[in-house]
Every structure is written in C-alpha cells, then in structure tokens.
Nucleic acid binder design. Structure first.
Lengths: 332, 332
DNA sequence: TTGAAAGCGCTACCAG
DNA sequence: CTGGTAGCGCTTTCAA
C-alpha cells in the first residue's frame, strides 16, 4: 500500500494525496474526504524512508555514552529522549565503553543514516579533538556535549562547573571545622580533573600547604575503589576528618571501609560524594553529595541541540551550577 | 557527493560503483582500483536512506521500556544494544512510562520508519493484548518481550520464572526456621503477581493457613514504599521474622524502617529482595536477593529477535531460572 | 564484465 | 485547486 494505491482508489493524483497527508496547500473538501476515507480504510502510513529520501532527514538523533547502565547517564538520556520523542524523533543510544574506536564506528553508521543530531554524554568525549579523521565523519551534524567541550564548528557544549562544586564541598567542610581533608580522584576524565582542581583551589585559599599530598588516586569509581581509597588515606599517616570523593559510589565504598575499621561517620570522618545518585539515599548514613542536576543538563543539551538543528543561533556553551546536598555523612 | 559523482570521476557507471561498494559481482581489478581510489579520495559513504528505500530496511531496532533510568532495564538495554550494534544496527530507546498511549505513539513512528525489530522490556507490555488496534500497527515487525507474553503471531517471549524465584526465597526462609513470613507486593504487573503466587505456593506447601493475610500491598517500589510496607506488616500484629520483597529497593526501604524501629536484620527479621541490583551491595547489611539475570535475559531477547528477523524458526518462548544470592540480610 | 534503465515511495515544483 | 513530472540516491535486473 503506497501513495499511488491510495490515489488510485480515491480517484485522484498522488499530489493531492500528499497534500492531505501533510495538510499542505488547499484541497477541495469533497476530495479531501474521499482521500481520508481511503487512508483510514487501509490504515495507511506513509513511508518515513521515502520521505527521508526527499527531506534528507529521518528524524533520528543519537546519544553516545560510555554506558547506559550508569544511572547518572541514564537520567540525562531519559530527559533527552522524552524531549525529542515529543518532537517526533527517535533516539538511539550507543554505548561506547569509552573507546574511541567504538565512537568511530558509531559515527560512521550515524552519518550514513543522516542522523539529525548527536549528544555526547560525558567529558570522555573531549579526547575526540585529537582525532580529526573521526570527527570529520560527522562534520555536518550538530553535536552537543554534556559536560564536555570540543572546539569544532559543529560541536556545542553544556558545561557543569565541577571545579566550583568540589570547592563548595571543601569550603563546607572547612567552615565546619574539618581541616584535615582528603580528596579521592576516581575518574581520569576532564571532569574528574576539574573536580580535583576545585579541591586544590580550596586548599590553597585556606593556606593548606600540602594540597597535592591530600589527593589519593584510585583507578575505579566503585565500592571497591572507595574501599581502596580509605586504605590509601589511612596509610599516608596524615590526620583526616573529612573526605570528598569524585563520585557517590566511591564515597559509599569509602564510608563502608571506614565504618568497618571503627571510624564513625560523620563524627570522626565526614564524607561527601558527587552526583546525588539514588545510591546516596540507600547507604547509612545517607550521603552528602553534590547535585550536578543531570535532568537539567540533559534538558539543556536537548534544547541546545534542537536550536542548532533548526539552524537557530544560541549560546554555544552554558554552565550548570551544582548544589551541595547535606545529608548524614556530613551533617554537623 | 553521491554514487553518480563517484562514477563520473572514476570514469565508469553507477552500477559498477555499486558493485565495488557492496563487493557484489565481478569487477575488473583495474576499474575496481580506480573506483576505490575515488571512494577514498572523497571519503564517500553511501546513503543508508537511499539504500533503505530499496532494501526496505534501515537496520534499526527499538527497545520500549517503562523507564531507562531503572537499572534493571538499563542492564538489558545495554546487552541488547551491544549485540545489535555489532551487527550494524542502531538501537533506539523509547520510554513509555508504562502508558499504553505512549506505546501506541511509538509503534506508529516505528512502523513508519520500517523498524526491523522491537524489544519490549517488562511484563507491563502484556496488557497490549487488550489493544488489537495498537498491536496491528506493528503486525509485520517481529517483537520480543522480555519477561512477558502476548499471544500474537509476531510476538515472542523470553520468560523469567518469577514464581519459582519467590518460592525459592520462601523455602530458604522456612528451611532456616523463619516461619513467620510476609511478602511485600510492590509492583502490580504480571511479573509482580507471579512473584506473589510463588510466595502463596510456598506457604501452602508448608501448610501455613493464612498465606493471603501475609501479603502486604504497597503502591510503589521505592524506599518509601518499603518503609510503608514495614509499617503495614507491624500493624497486622502478626508475628514476623522474615520478609520477602518484590524488588530490591522496596526491601532496602523496609530494612531501613525496621532497623530504625529497633529490629535487628537478620537476627530479628530476615529480608530478601529481588533483582540483584547494585543497590543490594550498598545497603547494610547487604541484601539477600534473587538474581533474575537481566544480562542473560537481554542476550536471549537479542538472539531470539535476531533469529526472527532472519526468518529463522526458533523457540517462541524460553524461561530463565533465577538464583538466590544469600547475603547479610538473610544469612543464618 | 559492464552500463542503461527501471524502480523504491515520497515531496515539490510548475503548468493548467 | 489539481495533476503531471522530476528528482532524492541507491540496488537490481537485463542486454550488450
């Protein structure tokens, strides 16, 4: 069943059928009714592919992320999907696992399919700037990076002020008399480095001399990574009464380890995480954390992408201000 | 840059270019080299839309789920996406929020786009059987339901034996002397009802007369729902030393509430959840839970869908056997 | 082994 | 207001 069949049965031309289909141009009410009757009779739906052939768009966008199972990403994906779905788009999700090769593979397919827009979630994608032959594949597609930045003409950003976030958390600790702080650096992305930077700035502002010595590095943001971090902190032998982690899950692992070793949280050691994840409500005590507003971030990415897809000019880069959510693990 | 441009520059016809593009049919090596050089020169990529116009497929599948932010669903989505991405497909994710109208909207778009296959995640989609006018829209598309079943010619299933799962958990409790059990019914889906059924069967097998009175109902699977459940259980006035919940998060909320009310877990009250979610490792004590193997489920859905898309005959319905994971909240 | 030509199903333009 | 027609960029016959 195609537009020719409909036209034939309605005794008119495909042009007219196309007009009633798209509500475009004037059509004699009589004929319109006749066409609509046939349309309904066969429950006819025009082929989006054929339409795409002409219009050069299939009304599809894609989201690339390291892993959709990470709730923080899923929260952004959800918002973006809802927004675009309301506009009649489909949203495909691509898990790159953080691999540039995978990213390349996806870009290739997406460009062949004339995907209308791309959202990259996470600052891992910043490294794309080093691979011009990869980004070239989507040079005609508007791209928005959530909390990342790539200086290319078709790339736009919505940034999160991670540095300020951790500075806030550090200041909060200081203001409440927690002078012996540690920072757990658990994700080696630009975002992770920005967070560390916030910690170091706060240390400097308070004239703490050994800021760098108070950063411990673990190579996974996970419960286990957090446990390791606790061990590393204690083994420095330096005093500690407050720890700030780059991710909630690390903070939770760290808290578990400290508790098992007999420390009280927050009395002996106050802890804050980052992301305001559902996890932070599950652990005990509940985790103080930085809310970096993934829904807002996702929503802004969607708006920005939509603007660029419509050719509208708009801010090429906006910034989200995180908020500290005080809970049991750092309530004084 | 289209196939005509390539043909012109290579001094041959589009037919020949098409042949080298698809490695189909014989091509004079000389000409092939010439064409490939031009292909490379312009980094030419054929239009998937034009191709789809002829082949009637865009190599796209769709996953419909209530909400991608639910980790249990995201775990399946991940596996399915990886599997199909390796086959050159794109996977679009659709959040229906459990609404049939939304489902209808998605089906409409998906059918217009000639989506090659659909995966429905969750037994909420079972109710589609009541809406033949909606399912009619995708009657030519193979559909696989993860843990659900709709008796239509193009619908296939991978089932999880939820009843057995909860029966196992109940038996485990009984075997360890926990005779005063409660079940928390926290999701009103077929899956939820199957779980309750497992509890009732176990009660009957042990000749517990008041099985039904030992089911408490809450209307959300959430921390708050779990807290409410604890209250409801206590207010029955019946003895209790073991509780089984339909979802981990409910079990966690329930455990928190019991602990705050002075009960020890598992000494006074043992608790098990369902899903083996990451959450179950975060709470304290860690939660005993039923692993219903979402990755395996997702993988089987992907295989089944692939088989049906290739027209292969295969089991129309297979079942996954959950496993009980014993942890602190129910270790004796 | 090659190339001309006929679609695939639609939109958009233009003449009537 | 209507309908014929020229594409959109490819794949696939079918002759040559």
């Amino acid at each position: 069943m195609n537009i020719y069949d409909i036209a034939a049965e309605a005794g008119t031309s495909i042009s007219t059928v196309s007009r009633v289909l798209n509500n475009k141009g004037n059509v004699n009410p009589k004929i319109r009714d006749r066409v609509e009757a046939v349309l309904k009779k066969y429950d006819y739906k025009p082929s989006a592919i054929a339409r795409g052939m002409v219009s050069k768009t299939m009304k599809n966008i894609a989201i690339l992320t390291v892993d959709v199972r990470v709730t923080h990403y899923a929260r952004m994906i959800y918002v973006i999907e809802q927004e675009f779905s309301n506009l009649g788009y489909n949203v495909s999700v691509c898990n790159t696992g953080g691999s540039v090769q995978e990213c390349d593979r996806y870009f290739e397919i997406l460009s062949e399919k004339q995907t209308d827009g791309i959202v990259l979630i996470g600052s891992v994608f910043n490294e794309l700037i080093k691979y011009p032959e990869i980004t070239a594949k989507i040079k005609d597609t508007p791209v928005v990076i959530a909390n990342g930045q790539v200086k290319l003409p078709n790339f736009y950003s919505v940034l999160v002020d991670d540095t300020k976030a951790i500075r806030m958390a550090s200041d909060y600790m200081f203001d409440h008399g927690r002078m012996d702080l540690f920072y757990v650096f658990d994700i080696a992305t630009d975002s992770g480095r920005a967070k560390r930077q916030g910690f170091l700035e706060a240390m400097k502002l308070r004239d703490v001399p050994d800021g760098n010595d108070r950063v411990v590095i673990v190579d996974e943001s996970s419960l286990e990574g957090g446990r390791n971090a606790a061990g590393k902190i204690l083994s420095t032998g330096m005093p500690v009464n407050g720890v700030i982690c780059g991710e909630d899950i690390t903070a939770i692992g760290l808290m578990k380890e400290f508790k098992e070793r007999g420390y009280r949280v927050p009395e002996d050691i106050a802890i804050t995480g980052c992301n305001n994840s559902p996890d932070s409500r599950i652990c005990e005590p509940e985790l103080a954390t930085l809310d970096n507003k993934p829904e807002l971030l996702g929503g802004m990415c969607a708006s920005l992408l939509r603007d660029r897809m419509e050719g509208k000019e708009s801010a090429t880069s906006v910034a989200i201000q995180p908020e500290l959510v005080v809970r049991g693990s750092a309530s004084f």
